[in-house]
Design a protein around this nucleic acid. Structure first.
Lengths: 327, 327
DNA sequence: GTTGCAATTGAAATCGATCCCAATTTTTGT
DNA sequence: ACAAAAATTGGGATCGATTTCAATTGCAAC
């Protein structure tokens, strides 16, 4: 494969000049044309490893999420990637399965890659232990954030959104409402807080379950709740993955929504509008989240000194059949 | 950030020796321990760009798909990534939106990255024009393949699967069956062929629509088919994305399945089992596809000379409510 | 025809690792 | 204890680009 020296010889110039053509440096039009022609002749491709080594910038960002198969992360990551490539950057995607060891391993990998920055959806545990300053690159957290702000972050207004679900269910006439939340992310905690607060405001108890963030765990937990002698009349479910588990549990228990149990949750996944008369959900602005995260990262690269900020986006309540008024 | 020379000095050895520790070369245990201690002290991270430049292998593979939001590609890509990281390789993911220009651009990028290999789901157009030998790295195609085998590939037995759907619908008593297929991939063509063949075998006409591979395009096309005076009694739909469009079309036309129109398609996406009594689909072994592709790539790297081969995997018919016997 | 200044160009150092080869140390056999 | 063989270590070249700095060229003004 041709290298810069070959191009230089073919064009009768020095390697420096070829490099300048590559980087839009000052070159006369005549020479530039000759060099470009030589590149075409030789089918030249600049070696990115060499370029990165010398120039000390990799134009690469890391995107660390729990599981790309979670439609929320799928959508966010697509937005991040589009935005990254538009800015001439590459993306390294990592799946952690909410496992702190994998998170640590991938953060280490990011250091070896000398990435320009990282967009990260960390577990609670890692948030608590992480020293972002020691990493050597800026981090923008998404979906989850540390309470005490030390890195940039893009999150949903989770308390408000969860409270909105509760208020909606109350307005529809439901009272016995239980919640199901993920136990590994700060997001689950926040949504629980909003749920509990809104229930308390209404003078109601707020029974809640915290489960591992998987369809199966949610399904088991909801089955158990449904089998209890005092079955809840409505369920608030903390995200799309858990909602899938809840729906499976209801189906296998032979129960219908909203007649037997009303449902309301998060994430406007494609299938939520198709089930019965639709599932009531808080739609997250997934595209905006990805784009905002990328934008914050770029701003941070511009100005390393500015104080960390959190972008809080609002969800949108989509009231559908699963929370129709109680009989 | 510490470099290899710093570690060498700290440990009182040469850079070569540190490098040998890094690469598991021959080093005495005593020295190895000293070096590892120095690395820890300095929080040393090897610079991958430098390593790649010198060693001439990047341990990086490219994964080029149309859209990671398509659950089929989401699942395949997760499998590919797991397998890659298990083998100490990194993955660069690219979304082409079935756009040949983007495909060309990303292939070029892969050359600049000097990737070890690429796993690629190409459009028909690119398959036709591509000269894999000129690329400089091995390619394993997934989901789609060129008729005349010049690269390795992992595909479903699309004809068989499509025919199986037809046979199933026939067995259930359906006769007026129409098909909807994507128009950018060889996969759509293959599935159409299987569909047409099976219909012909039964002595039936095989009306088919070819549409752009988007939910919206499928929705429009199916709406039109449903509005025609001779409405089909059953629909074979070529993939999960198009199926979503078909379901939306039926819903908005106020039609039910299987009473008004039976449905059968591809991709066992999570929601397909939840709609009504479930959607009849061919389940693709998505994990196996990803793993097989990665395995083929590794074998090819071992033996560049061996003749290209195609791995053909079988789909699994999941007969569910949407194709229940005609009244 | 100089002089001066700006615009181009080239030579050589450099980024941070690996790799080849020679030098040194350790081990083995007798 | 000594020679030969094996294992370990270091020095220096190298991967392919960018970057710095100095040299050269071109052009305008006098």
């Amino acid at each position: 494969m041709a290298k810069i020296k070959d191009v230089a010889e073919a064009a009768g110039v020095s390697a420096s000049t070829v490099s300048r053509v590559l980087c839009n440096g000052p070159v006369s039009d005549k020479v530039r044309k000759r060099v470009e022609e030589a590149m075409r002749q030789l089918d030249y491709r600049p070696n990115l490893a060499a370029r990165r080594l010398r120039s000390q910038h990799t134009d690469t960002i890391g995107l660390i999420v729990s599981d790309i198969r979670n439609p929320f992360f799928t959508a966010v990551s697509r937005a991040v990637e589009d935005e990254a490539y538009r800015n001439g950057m590459r993306v390294i995607l990592c799946n952690t399965d909410e496992n702190p060891d994998k998170e640590a391993m991938y953060l280490r990998l990011m250091q070896e890659e000398r990435v320009t920055g990282v967009i990260f959806a960390p577990t609670r545990q890692t948030v608590a232990n992480l020293d972002p300053a020691a990493l050597g690159f800026p981090v923008v957290m998404i979906d989850r954030a540390s309470r005490d702000v030390t890195t940039d972050a893009v999150v949903l207004d989770n308390r408000r959104a969860a409270a909105a679900l509760v208020e909606h269910l109350l307005a529809q006439g439901y009272r016995d409402i239980a919640g199901v939340f993920g136990n590994t992310s700060s997001t689950g905690m926040e949504r629980h807080a909003g749920f509990a607060e809104a229930m308390q405001q209404a003078g109601l108890p707020a029974p809640a379950q915290f489960v591992a963030p998987s369809v199966e765990a949610a399904e088991q937990a909801v089955l158990a709740m449904l089998a209890a002698e005092q079955r809840p009349r409505a369920l608030v479910v903390s995200n799309g993955v858990l909602m899938l588990g809840a729906v499976r549990a209801l189906k296998s228990a032979g129960l219908h929504w909203p007649q037997d149990v009303a449902l309301a949750g998060f994430d406007n996944d494609v299938w939520t509008e198709l089930l019965g008369d639709g599932l009531t959900v808080i739609e997250q602005p997934v595209g905006d989240i990805g784009r905002a995260a990328m934008a914050m990262l770029l701003e941070r690269l511009d100005d390393a000194g500015r104080s960390p900020r959190i972008v809080v986006l609002q969800g949108k309540l989509l009231a559908r059949g699963s929370s129709a008024p109680a009989a």
